[in-house]
Computed example of a mutant assay.
Amino acid sequence: MPVKKILVVDDSPTERHVLVQLLTQNGYQVITAENGEEGIGKAKAELPDLVLMDVVMPGLNGYQATRTLTRDEATKHIPVIVCTTKGQETDKIWGLRQGALDYIIKPVNGDELLAKIAAL
C-alpha cells in the first residue's frame, strides 16, 4: 500500500516545518502533532499511512507514544519511523523494541527519508 498521508510528531516548530515542506513537495499529505499525546490522538482519528516520531518531547516521549501506537488494535498497522537527535546504538535498539519500523538520526537527510518511505 503506497504511503500518502504522513503524521509528523515533533515538539520543534522548526523540525515540523522542515519535514512538512520536504514531504508536501514530494506529494504527501501531512498532518502534524506537537507531542506524544496529540500524536496518538491524531493517529487514531486520521489513520495515517506512516508516523514520523520524535523522541525527546514534553509529556509522553516518542518511545512511549510509539509503544502505545504499535500495541493498540486501532493503530498497530501504521508503521512508525523514529526521527530523533538521540543517535546512540542503545537509543536505536530501544526505539525498535518499542515497535518502530525504522530509526533516523536528525538532522534528517531528505533523500534518505524519502527512500525509506518509498520502500514501505
Rank of each mutant, 00 (worst) to 15 (best):
A43H: 05
D11L: 13
V30S: 06
I31D: 10
T85F: 08
Y103N: 01
V8M: 08
D72M: 12
N26D: 13
E112R: 05
T85I: 11
V30M: 10
S12R: 11
K92I: 02
M53W: 01
S12E: 11
Y103K: 02
H77C: 09
G39Q: 01
V51K: 01
Q98C: 10
G110T: 09
G59I: 15
T70F: 03
R97I: 02
V82E: 00
K76D: 13
V30N: 04
Y103G: 00
D91L: 00
C83M: 11
T68W: 07
T68Y: 09
I117N: 00
H17W: 12
K4I: 14
E38I: 15
L60Q: 15
T14S: 12
G62I: 14
A43N: 03
M57N: 06
R97T: 06
V8G: 03
N61G: 11
Y28T: 12
D54L: 07
L22P: 05
G36Q: 02
R67Y: 14
L7G: 05
K76C: 13
M57Y: 11
G110W: 01
R97Y: 03
L120I: 15
N109G: 04
V8C: 05
T90F: 11
L52P: 01
D49Y: 05
I104Y: 07
I78Y: 01
I78P: 00
C83P: 02
P58M: 12
L60K: 14
I40P: 01
Q25V: 09
V9W: 04
N35Q: 10
I93F: 06
D10I: 09
D72S: 13
T84D: 05
K42E: 11
N26G: 07
N26R: 07
P48H: 07
G41Q: 14
P79L: 04
H77D: 15
V3S: 02
L50N: 11
L52Y: 09
S12H: 06
V20L: 08
Y28L: 12
T68C: 05
